[in-house]
Design a protein around this nucleic acid. Structure first.
Lengths: 175, 175
DNA sequence: ACTATACAGTACTGATTTGGTACTTTTAAT
DNA sequence: ATTAAAAGTACCAAATCAGTACTGTATAGT
């Protein structure tokens, strides 16, 4: 469906929130409270982010999570890599090789690989620090975002609100 | 999971095949046979493509499908718009507005919208004619596809082969 | 007019994926 | 020792996807 999973969405939300005070130790409970998400869900995301070294964790009382590196050096592509189950790739045969019996004959694969590269670059051009500021002069702002038509905004139903929770209040909920 | 659905994959496959002879009328059965896909599945895809005016259909005996416009003017973004259920957008709150209760406060939404634009442009830069040729000097080849690291090729299992069927044999199976 | 062919629409079912939760274990500070 | 907090594992419900079947409609050829 060409959409990131909710967990990935939560991940960017959490990291963006943490980027407000890059040195502070945040507890999973505090983040859940601040972002209006369930604690188990937040824990799950943070654990995964920790496994991929985007945050580092401190166990025990007064423990918690800290960004493992400055927010400028954590890109959206990093978050997707960490949180999405399948390896990056718009199609199955382009994310991992060897699954397609007639790979050598397939004329489309090369093109999908190239499309992937372009999409990935777009995702790598945006980092968490960019997300904190509403619209900074970030590299991806240079793209001709004006002249793209978006020809199907399609006022579809779309169920309940997803991960779009206020990232504001970046400084309550210490610890 | 940031991946297009199989139906969309089939769609590009079918259109690419048809682009081999842009004027020819292809039957659903012929395409299914040529591409090694199930007839019902191919029919489903073609019907949807027809509804979105990417192919035009001719009913009755000797009927079939033809590309509705030259392959140079059908982009991957068009195919995705036609075949994916949800409207384009990496996150729910970025594909349609009004679903997020605190939309105005959300500092991330603007950024997702911008990321979407970039990704969409990448998808719009590639057309079906590009897909036919292994690696033409297409606009998206100009991107710095060299310096992207792809840091997680992750030799994951990955189930059965998907839509990666030979697009070759572009000229057997007439009608 | 009749018949064969081929697209159109709808609906259903099984399988996969996702999202969320619960429970147990390990680690560290007081 | 007790408490706080993360780590790991496993599980369940719900949503989504993929594929199939069935019925209807239009066209060409005889």
């Amino acid at each position: 469906m060409l959409r990131i999973s909710k967990l990935t969405d939560y991940g960017t939300l959490i990291l963006t929130h943490m980027a407000g005070h890059p040195e502070r130790v945040y507890s999973a409970a505090g983040l859940a409270e601040a972002l209006g998400l369930g604690l188990p869900t937040v824990s799950k995301v943070l654990k995964t982010l920790g496994r991929h070294a985007l945050v580092s964790s401190q166990r025990g009382a007064h423990g918690g999570y800290v960004l493992a590196r400055p927010p400028e050096r954590i890109t959206i592509a990093d978050v997707i890599d960490a949180l999405e189950d399948q390896p990056f790739g718009l199609t199955e045969c382009s994310s991992s090789s060897g699954v397609c019996s007639i790979e050598s004959d397939c004329r489309i694969r090369d093109n999908w690989l190239r499309i992937n590269s372009v999409v990935r670059e777009a995702l790598q051009a945006v980092d968490i620090a960019d997300m904190v500021h509403p619209a900074r002069g970030s590299p991806f702002a240079t793209a001709s975002a004006t002249e793209h038509r978006l020809h199907g905004p399609a006022p579809q139903p779309a169920r309940a609100a997803a991960a779009c929770i206020p990232a504001a209040r970046a400084d309550d909920q210490e610890i």
